[in-house]
Design a protein around this nucleic acid. Structure first.
Lengths: 233, 233
DNA sequence: CCTTCGCATTGAGCCGGATCAACGATCCGG
DNA sequence: CCGGATCGTTGATCCGGCTCAATGCGAAGG
């Protein structure tokens, strides 16, 4: 394992709470793992064996309905913590959306280490609380928002999570997003169908609120307009 | 404030992690508060001033859509922890569903105390992780389940949370639930309208899966049938 | 260059749940 | 016991998003 002190997310992941010596100890418990797009790291209902940090790439948390429909329950970006510590089973699957690198620990080793390092647990608590806030905001979206609102909110959420590349060519404040998700994945995230997502994107494009230079790219032309469509927040 | 050692939820709330001496200290930071049905304890977006434990009664966590529609994002039963520690604002409102008693702390005092008591923080972390699991299960419900599935799942969730009173009269394993929620509140919880909730309940009654001896009471006659309607989990 | 394959878009029709509106049932104060 | 208020149920209609089906498009490979 590469030295933690050289880690790309050293200053953003929960490990930031650790001093050099502790970090050294933790690093001996972990290993780096690379995942290919589509590959699963954890399976819904399985024993909770792994936890870890995302170093690079995007992953999703998902679950399959009895009706065969997939629902995505969350997303993980670099420096996010994933897995279910302090429980015997993982309630949901974790799947790589893009090729990804994660730094993983066996759950039991991590649990033991965490219990001995209150600062680490504190960071983890803060993250979990934020994640809970985020999940509840998403519940609000799934429970009471229209398709337009969902797609708009999704794009705004993405814009806040992704490294935003400003479009230089004079187009005032336009932001280009490189989507890590395909249309079907967006649909699973929003509790919609792929057709509805596509139609909403087309509509937003016609309204000159966004542009779609390519399948996997979105340019936000009118952020305020998009926020209005998202029903705020 | 009554002594914590006599508290009704002493052995179930996060305080269980504390020794007598620490408990004594914590109790000096807190106060008991009674709430009437419908009364709010925290307001969405306000400064996060309070956190606490539910001693008695039921409360809900909710948010109002731009469209004026209410969505309930969670519920609190005795021994549950509520409020948003370690953040400056509470993202959602907390409102009493029934008359309730809560034991509250100012957030700043609680935060300070928690940081000095890793065992307490650990308990809080475990609770937050469970709450996150629960929120995600609910997201699955809101994102991809039908009205029948939602209402059935709601009744099962309630049955697992409420002190179940078995119906004695030979009716094999039937369970009676005293609903703390009105129809509108159930609708807000499930992301449905009151009419749809009502129709679903009527349907389940016709199918002899449940019975409704009174407005606020539900008897689960056929638990397996209800689980089937809920699309499992 | 053309083919193929996977993904995205577009169209037509349908259905579940929302909406609007009326009607019961229960509770409470007098 | 009555009258009103609140809450829940039921019915009729409407509409947003789903379903099913066809078409378009860009990337990879022959």
């Amino acid at each position: 394992m590469t030295r933690c002190s050289e880690c790309a997310v050293r200053d953003r992941a929960i490990c930031q709470s650790l001093c050099e010596a502790d970090l050294e100890e933790l690093s001996r418990l972990g290993r780096h793992q690379t995942l290919e797009k589509g590959q699963a790291l954890l399976w819904e209902g399985d024993e909770s064996l792994l936890v870890g940090n995302v170093v690079d790439g995007v992953l999703k948390l998902c679950s399959t309905t009895s009706a065969g429909r997939d629902q995505t329950l969350g997303t993980f970006y670099p420096s996010d913590f994933l897995g279910r510590p302090f429980a015997s089973t993982t309630p949901h699957s974790v799947i790589a959306v893009t090729d990804a690198r994660v730094c993983t620990f066996t759950r039991s080793a991590f649990d033991g280490f965490a219990r001995k390092h209150p600062d680490l647990e504190h960071k983890l608590l803060q993250r979990t609380l934020s994640e809970l806030d985020r999940a509840r905001r998403w519940m609000l979206l799934l429970g009471s928002k229209s398709a337009t609102e969902r797609v708009s909110a999704f794009l705004l959420d993405l814009a806040s999570r992704l490294p935003a590349e400003p479009v230089d060519q004079g187009s005032d404040g336009a932001i280009r997003l490189e989507l890590p998700f395909g249309r079907q994945e967006i649909a699973d995230l929003l509790g919609l169908t792929i057709e509805t997502v596509s139609r909403q994107i087309t509509q937003l494009k016609h309204d000159r609120i966004i542009d779609t230079p390519s399948r996997r790219a979105i340019v936000i032309l009118d952020r305020a307009g998009l926020e209005a469509c998202a029903g705020e927040l």
